[in-house]
Amino acid sequence: MVLGLILLAVAIICLIAIFREFKRQNMFGAAFSAISALVFGFFSIATLYWELIRPLITGE
């Protein structure tokens, strides 16, 4: 569960970086931040689902 929260924090920081790089007109940095936010966001949601929601549904 801790891993999912850390990945979620990194994804939120990447979202902040997207707006900062758009403000600086750095499109390469904005694109890299967007890809990082998507990857880290996916893995954080998948990890939290696997650790928290799936055991509630399956009764494990």
Score class of each variant (00 low, 15 high):
Met1Val: 14
Met1Ser: 15
Met1Trp: 08
Met1Gln: 11
Leu3Arg: 13
Gly4Pro: 02
Gly4His: 02
Gly4Glu: 10
Gly4Gln: 08
Leu5Pro: 01
Leu5Gly: 09
Ile6Asn: 01
Ile6Val: 15
Ile6Gly: 05
Leu8Pro: 00
Leu8Asn: 03
Ala9Val: 14
Ala9Tyr: 02
Ala9His: 02
Val10Tyr: 03
Ala11Glu: 09
Ile12Cys: 11
Cys14Ser: 12
Cys14Gly: 03
Leu15Lys: 04
Leu15Gly: 15
Leu15Tyr: 05
Leu15Phe: 11
Ile16Asn: 10
Ile16Phe: 12
Ala17Gly: 04
Ile18Met: 11
Phe19Tyr: 11
Arg20Asp: 14
Arg20Met: 13
Arg20Phe: 06
Glu21Thr: 12
Lys23Gln: 14
Lys23Ser: 14
Arg24Cys: 10
Arg24Ala: 15
Gln25Leu: 15
Asn26Thr: 07
Asn26Leu: 09
Gly29Ile: 08
Gly29Val: 08
Ala30Asn: 05
Ala31Tyr: 04
Ala31Trp: 05
Ser33Gln: 04
Ser33Ile: 07
Ala34Gly: 10
Ala34Asn: 02
Ile35Glu: 02
Ile35Leu: 10
Ile35Tyr: 02
Ala37Ser: 12
Ala37Val: 05
Leu38Thr: 09
Val39Trp: 00
Val39Leu: 12
Val39Asp: 03
Phe40Gly: 00
Phe40Pro: 00
Gly41Cys: 09
Phe42Gln: 05
Phe43Gly: 01
Phe43Thr: 02
Ile45His: 01
Ile45Arg: 01
Ala46Pro: 04
Thr47Cys: 05
Thr47Pro: 00
Thr47Met: 08
Leu48Glu: 10
Tyr49Val: 13
Tyr49Gln: 06
Trp50Leu: 13
Ile53Phe: 07
Ile53Met: 10
Arg54Pro: 02
Arg54Gly: 06
Pro55Asn: 12
Pro55Thr: 12
Pro55His: 10
Leu56Glu: 12
Leu56Lys: 08
Gly59Cys: 10
Glu60Asp: 14
